[in-house]
Design a protein around this nucleic acid. Structure first.
Lengths: 223, 223, 223, 223
DNA sequence: AATGAATGAGGCTTCATTCAT
DNA sequence: TATGAATGAAGCCTCATTCAT
């Protein structure tokens, strides 16, 4: 992202490396801009201006604004997938594992507000870029498999009573994490409470875990 | 602002009625357009074209695109406030009352996807229009008072054990309702599950209630 | 100009008086606005807004922006004519009379910067409004007659040697008075000297008189 | 900015030449239009239409209407400065030198009516564009230095008696030259005399010289 | 004599994109 | 691989003016 001063190499793939770097730089800036002001609000000129290359390169590498936005989404989702692939909670008992997974989800949302904004924006566009992307259609989530296994194990042991599958539980966990970051501005403006206040962070993190565990383990009337 | 049914008066206000109607019509169309494509994506020309008046009237009544968007938000929040003021759940016992409130919140989100989109959009803009609006700053929510009273009553009777105040509980309930509608496109595209599929509606509605009640009533380790 | 609270009179010309007053108020405001930002720069809305009446009245009384500007010019030239009609310098000897007249012209320009601006503006428009006005075409100037008589008397007595007629002398005197007020902004910005600085007022007033007298009385080579 | 006569170079700058030409062409047309109808009266569309490029280029090169007007002023003042730098009168005796300088000023005004109109217009705007321009603030005038030296020499030799400095004398000379061109429309319309009638040109040119010399050399009462 | 609502034409500016080199 | 110049379409907004009452 920062310009690296590496010695000019007479032969070889110096060019190629530069190309990759240019591409990455454009993606970095574009991610910030799209996240900041939305797809329609972003300006190709502004993105180019914040780059060490020119506007022409955006068209050269990505083809256009729309494809650039799709590339931004693809990379952003790639990052989250990688993080999820590093999840390591299955050595814990089901209750602890789920709580840990919820917390990691919570942390990931907190650390990537730009990604959350991009997702909000993509939803305004009814996920059309995801639908058009070869990389992103039905990409699923590594976390889902983890959840699936924890749920199965918890249910086997009789600890979990709730009638949820992994996808719904993922939605339940995500909803709180996402809302807290995505809607913090309107929520703060209307209710005077900053949902991402660092001082309240632990409180909300615990609240999420409590909620998920309570839901999964609640005594159920025979239905 | 809402369509007024007042009898035709002998002289005068014929025009005034038209003015209110014109204003309301513009707001209706603008609400749809802003919700559909966001603030930056919306076109004043398009809004005007879908109206029985002209573009000029938008500027006459609202002053500009930005103020129009603010007016749209103001009216949209007004509608939700009115709905919340009609909440009538306090004759129920705390558990039933909270479940009912969660369900009504759920239903309201389901019925007003445009409103949810507007809120997402306003969050992308970091709630700047709410902040600039005299009508909307720290508007609070009638639902909060209802929640507050139910929580107090439930805690008194020993039914509720969770350490939440009304604002946090409101966030918890809203997050699921909001996410389900707001993020349904990306969620559907990535996981192949339509969160607003009518066939799954009851399932999610129950799930929300279960989650909230489980959270509020869970046995807590002495901490 | 200020709204006067006079008792409503049941009969009589109360209406007419109001009409005259409204007209005058519009003219006052229009004079300021046109002088401030030029004909094209002035806004009918702004003029109306600074009035106690409405925009409609401007059209009612004057017909349109163009005619309003013409009316403004007509009244402004009327004021200067009246002032010139009160010139009383012919009891002085020719030299003193001319100096006095120059000084009065100087003073008049200083006191009516808005008028000078209007004249500049009308020149940008190539005097088309004057040409179109019945009141203003070839209106001449009472001052011209005065100058004519002084010149004749001065030449008779041998004091004045210059080959000028009244119109040219009027131009000579006016040019300095006009330039000092009209061009003071560019002159000040470029040369750092404020031509209308009160402290330099006497200096320029004297300079003008000296110049005119010197010109009129200079010894001429036999040509 | 001025049309450059540089030989076509083997590669490269073909475009650059075009850019300079495009810029210059826009400036030419803009100068005419602004001079013709004033800043507010000029239309960016009209300027573009009279150009071989498009409206977009005006914004590409100048940024906007306001900056275009400033650029027009900058170039116009640049032209006059160049002319003044070519003044060559100091080989004459002070009286002849001043008369010659006045005549050259007179001629320059006559030859550049558009420039005079621009200056009038800029004064209506209270020299705000000059103030905002880095090129134009306190630009001074080469003529001033010339005048200064002539004045000193004339005063040394006892020929000049008047109490003026170069700036004031410059104002005195300019005022007549400027008025004659700038106010010719209203003056002509009101008094029936065309100040720029070619037949009267020599008359006014002489009149200006006579006036300046008479003023500078007049016998002064001991004050 | 007065007014709020309405209007069509046109104003300035900006957009994503492409061209020639 | 890279770039400054160029573009047409469209964006938001404002103008002087008129209408219905």
């Amino acid at each position: 992202m920062t310009s690296v001063d590496e010695p000019a190499r007479p032969h070889g793939n110096g060019r190629l490396r530069d190309a990759a770097r240019t591409r990455a730089e454009i993606l970095d800036v574009a991610t910030q801009e799209f996240a900041r002001v939305g797809y329609a609000g972003a300006r190709v000129d502004d993105i180019a201006a914040r780059t060490s290359t020119t506007k022409r390169m955006i068209y050269y590498y990505f083809g256009g604004k729309e494809q650039l936005f799709t590339a931004v989404l693809e990379r952003a989702y790639g990052v989250i997938r990688e993080a999820e692939q590093r999840l390591d909670v299955e050595h814990l008992d089901p209750v602890a594992a789920i709580r840990r997974l919820a917390e990691l989800t919570f942390d990931h949302h907190e650390r990537h507000p730009d990604f959350i904004r991009l997702v909000s924006i993509e939803n305004i566009h009814e996920a059309e870029h995801i639908a058009a992307s070869e990389k992103l259609g039905r990409i699923g989530s590594p976390a889902l498999d983890v959840i699936r296994r924890i749920l199965a194990s918890g249910r086997e042991s009789g600890l979990f009573t709730a009638d949820v599958d992994a996808v719904d539980l993922h939605a339940l966990i995500s909803s709180f994490c996402f809302f807290r970051v995505a809607n913090r501005h309107t929520f703060g403006a209307l209710f005077g409470r900053d949902l991402v206040d660092p001082d309240r962070r632990e409180h909300y993190r615990t609240m999420l875990g409590d909620m998920v565990i309570a839901y999964l383990t609640a005594e159920r009337s025979a239905d």
